[in-house]
C-alpha cells in the first residue's frame, strides 16, 4: 500500500508559500506593532504597566519622552494590544529577524507621534536575500538549550510542504560538525550550558549562531530563574537574533536569510 499513500499525496493540493508572502510574515505570532499617530502619554503609561516583561519602557532622557519596544524581550502576550487603545495592534510583518541585538529595539517619540529611526537595518532587501539563497547550501544544526519546545516546533514546521526549506538549499543536519549555522532556542539552562558550548566548539569555522525566540534573545519569561544561565549570548557569541514567542516559520526563515546577508553580498563573497 506504499503506492496508495504516494498516490494520495501526489493528488493533494499544492500549498507552497511564495517568497514574497513568506517574507517576515508574522500572522499568528501575536507580536505587537505601533500606530504612532494614536500614541499618547496615557497609552504609553498603560502599555508599560501591562507588559509582564520589560519589553516596553518609557525613556524620558534629554527632555523627550520615548516609548521603547524591545522585541527581544516580548513574549507576545498581547496585553499591550488590549491596553493600547488602538495604538497597539498585531504586527502583520516583523522584519527585525536575524538582526543584531540593538536592532531588536524600536523607539517612538510620544510628543511627535513618530518612530525614531536610529539604526534602520536594511530590511527591504530581505525578500531578495531569501531568493538569493536558492541554489545555495546551508547546513543548520538546531540546538535546544532549554526551550519549552514552542520554538523547536516552529523550526520543524519550516520543513513542512508549506514552507519547504529545502527549496532554498537549507538542510537541518544531525551533527554540529556538519553545520554552518547553529540555531539555538530557549533560555540556556544550567544543565545545558556545557552541552551548548561543546556543540558550538564542534562547528567548523567560519560559523554562524542565531538566537531564536524571546528566551534565546533575552531569557524571556524565564529570565532570572535560578536554574537558567541566561540568553544564548550569555554562553556563546551570537550573530543574529530572531524574536517571537514563538517566532513564526516565516520569521525564522527571514532571520536565517538576514544573518547570511553579509556573506551573500557580491563584493564580500570572495573574501568571506
Amino acid at each position: 500500500m506504499i503506492g496508495d499513500a504516494v498516490e494520495r499525496s501526489l493528488r493533494s493540493p499544492q500549498v507552497l508559500i511564495s517568497v514574497s508572502e513568506l517574507f517576515s510574515n508574522a500572522a499568528g505570532s501575536r507580536m505587537p506593532d505601533v500606530q504612532p499617530d494614536l500614541l499618547t502619554d496615557e497609552v504609553a503609561r498603560r502599555v508599560v504597566a501591562a507588559c509582564p516583561t520589560s519589553a516596553l519602557k518609557v525613556d524620558e532622557a534629554a527632555g523627550r519622552t520615548h516609548l521603547i519596544l524591545n522585541y527581544g524581550e516580548c513574549i507576545a502576550c498581547s496585553r499591550c494590544v488590549a491596553a493600547g487603545n488602538g495604538a497597539f495592534r498585531y504586527a502583520e510583518r516583523v522584519a527585525r529577524c536575524g538582526v543584531r541585538k540593538k536592532a531588536l529595539i524600536r523607539r517612538w517619540d510620544i510628543q511627535r507621534r513618530a518612530e525614531v529611526v536610529q539604526d534602520e537595518p536594511a530590511l527591504s532587501q530581505a525578500a531578495e536575500q531569501i531568493r538569493s539563497l536558492v541554489g545555495r547550501a546551508l547546513n543548520i544544526r538546531q540546538v535546544d538549550a532549554g526551550s519549552c519546545n514552542g520554538c523547536a516546533g516552529e523550526i520543524l514546521a519550516l520543513t513542512n510542504p508549506y514552507y519547504d526549506l529545502e527549496r532554498f538549499g537549507i538542510h537541518f543536519v544531525a551533527s554540529p560538525k556538519h553545520a554552518d549555522m547553529l540555531l539555538v532556542t530557549g533560555p540556556v539552562t544550567r544543565n545545558m550550558a556545557a552541552a551548548l558550548k561543546l556543540a558550538y566548539d564542534a562547528v567548523p569555522s567560519p560559523k554562524l549562531v542565531v538566537a531564536v525566540g524571546a528566551c534565546g534573545c533575552s531569557g524571556g519569561i524565564f529570565a532570572g530563574s535560578h536554574a537558567v544561565v541566561g540568553p544564548v549570548d550569555a554562553v556563546i557569541p551570537v550573530d543574529g537574533y530572531i524574536p517571537g514567542c514563538p517566532p513564526t516559520p516565516s520569521m525564522l526563515l527571514t532571520g536565517i536569510a538576514h544573518v547570511l546577508r553579509p556573506l551573500l553580498l557580491p563584493s564580500r563573497r570572495r573574501t568571506a
Partner: peptide, 30 residues
C-alpha cells in the same frame, strides 16, 4: 536538561500573570 525552575518562578506572581508561565511549560501543549 531543560529544567528551568518553573514552579519556583510562579511564586509571587499575580494570579492573572501566572497563565503566561503555564503557557511556557510545554509549548506544544500550551
Amino acid at each position: 536538561y531543560t529544567h528551568k525552575g518553573t514552579e519556583k518562578l510562579f511564586e509571587g506572581t499575580p494570579v492573572i500573570d501566572g497563565v503566561m508561565i503555564a503557557e511556557s511549560v510545554s509549548g506544544d501543549n500550551c
